Amino acid sequence: MEQTPITPRSCELGDELRTLRAKFSNGHEFASLLDWDPSKVSNIERGKVRPTDLDLAQYLTACGKGRGWVAEFSDFYRTAFDLYFAQAASNFKTISFAEASASTITGFGNATLPVLLRTTEYTEKLLIQRGATPEQIKDAVRSQQERQRVLGSAYRPEVLFYVTERSLVAPLDEARGRMDQLELLRRNSRFVRVIPDGEITPFSTEFTVYEHKKAPATAFVDCEFAKVFVHDATAVAQCRAFLAALDTISLSPADSKELLSRQLTEDYVAVIKTATEERPSTD
């Protein structure tokens, strides 16, 4: 069993093992069954160590799993500690573990807003533009709503997103939808720093850095094709340096909130004007 840096993926798979084992016995009873030290079971289930293929086979066999299931799960686990790990865009579990366990979340939204700050309509319109199926949209919205709970948690991490002005309402073509999105951002303005139009960012890829108190940081890149988790220290350091550079070109917290309020007012005026123009004449 190899001691390796913990990752969101190893935490996710460790939790799956714990859930599976809990159906049969508690940790101490299970360790006794395998003739393991209880700490070995605990460390595997917390994603802190990389179990050998034999360890996994013993563990899963004791849970009643057959050879095919064991082989498939072992294949998943081999990549859990990789410096670069990519998974299907439809998988939302790993990123949920990253957010729930983070002490600090800092990100950059270039063309679109980060998921934690989107309205449902924003996400739906964005995914429709990308050609997503109704089922994919439904799953994404459900995941978004679950992930956004982290912002209201008593143990909420420190959160800050640098977002470009053009990303604020990018996929929304109706003033009412833009107002809802801007109002959500204004309520959460303590998490937002706006990069005004006209500022040139030297980096175009959207990403988020998750800092953890007892584990190495993770950089995360989310696009329409895949989710990529980066645990390479050099790459994470480059992301941190870029975020520091964004701090110098973005608006202050107060000015960011003022911009959101101004745009919200402009859309409100537009809605009132449209409603007035469409009202039937009483003459």
Rank of each mutant, 00 (worst) to 15 (best):
E2M: 05
T94M: 12
R147V: 02
I105E: 05
F97L: 04
R118S: 03
R147P: 03
L182N: 06
L116M: 07
E124Y: 10
G152C: 01
E12S: 07
E146P: 01
E45H: 01
P253M: 04
Y77W: 11
A217D: 07
R240A: 09
E258N: 03
P51C: 03
T104E: 10
P202A: 14
G109N: 09
Y84V: 15
V49C: 04
A100D: 12
S25E: 04
T120V: 15
R187L: 15
A154H: 01
S143M: 03
A132E: 04
C11S: 08
C223R: 12
F108A: 07
H28F: 13
M179K: 07
P114K: 12
T123R: 04
P196C: 09
T274I: 00
T106H: 06
E2D: 06
F85P: 03
Y77K: 03
G109L: 08
P157A: 06
L13V: 10
R67L: 14
E29C: 06
T218H: 08
N43W: 05
L13G: 02
I44C: 04
S42R: 10
K23V: 12
R142S: 05
L172A: 06
M179R: 08
K65T: 13
F229Q: 02
R9L: 14
A62Q: 03
A270S: 01
F81E: 03
Q144P: 00
A140T: 12
